[in-house]
Every structure is written in C-alpha cells, then in structure tokens.
C-alpha cells in the first residue's frame, strides 16, 4: 500500500526538493503545505501516515502544531518528523518529548531524510 506524506515547510524550494526526493524513492503521495493553519485545517478531512514538519513556519509555529497533533486522540497516530534549523540540544529534546518521532536539522541531506522517512514508515 502506498503511504501518504504531508510536508509543512514555508520555503517552497525545500518542499519541492523533499517531494522529488521522496518521489524518487517510491513515496509518490506527497502533499505540501506552506503554513500551520492550512495544515491543521486539512487534518480535519484527511490524515497522512507521516508528517514532515518545519519548526519555523509562519502563523502557528511548528512546536504548537506538534502539540496540537499529539494532543488529539484522532491525530495522535500520525508519525511526525521535525525539520529544524535549531541545532540547540534543548530544542531537539523538547520536540522529542512532545512526541515527535524523529528530527532532522538543517542543513540536511535529502538522501538521509528519505531513508529516515522510509525507516519510520516501515
């Protein structure tokens, strides 16, 4: 069965890059959102298997989105991989504490990202 992935990232080039990379690795069903509000609104109609979430997004920030998703019974099962420019240890721990399944710090290697995503989806 093919897996569904949402990407929430405001830098469109990066989002496109991720989408292509994942596509090349066999994950074709990738939807891109450029802000937290749109993502959360879409969660009401459809849930992905995995969400790649940037911490620094306009509007509702990534941490809050993560909190909302992990705090709701219905959406809790969605795997979340945080994508972050924050390299401070404390922030990463904070993300993992709140239920993120993995994190990737920018700058990142697309190949590594794809393999981690695949591992979590397996």
């Amino acid at each position: 069965m093919s897996k569904k992935v949402f990407v929430c990232e405001d830098e469109s080039a990066i989002a496109k890059l991720i989408k292509l990379r994942l596509g090349a690795d066999g994950i074709k069903d990738v939807t891109i959102f450029d802000n937290g509000e749109k993502l959360l609104a879409h969660f009401n109609t459809e849930l992905p298997d995995l969400l790649l979430l940037d911490v620094m997004i306009p509007g509702v920030d990534g941490i809050t989105v993560l909190k909302t998703i992990k705090g709701d019974e219905r959406t809790r099962g969605v795997k979340v991989v945080m994508l972050t420019a924050l390299s401070k240890e404390a922030d990463i721990v904070k993300c993992l504490d709140m239920g993120a399944d993995d994190y990737i710090t920018k700058p990142f290697s697309p190949a590594e990202l794809a393999s981690r995503v695949k591992k979590i989806l397996r």
Binding site: A13, K106, P107, F108, S109, A111
Partner: peptide, 12 residues
C-alpha cells in the same frame, strides 16, 4: 542562497 544553506551531504 536557498539551496546551499539548506543542504549538506552528497547533493551539496
């Protein structure tokens, strides 16, 4: 500025 600041590894 968009790509090089965000990438590392082989692609970089």
């Amino acid at each position: 500025s968009v790509y090089l600041t965000n990438l590392k590894g082989d692609d970089f």
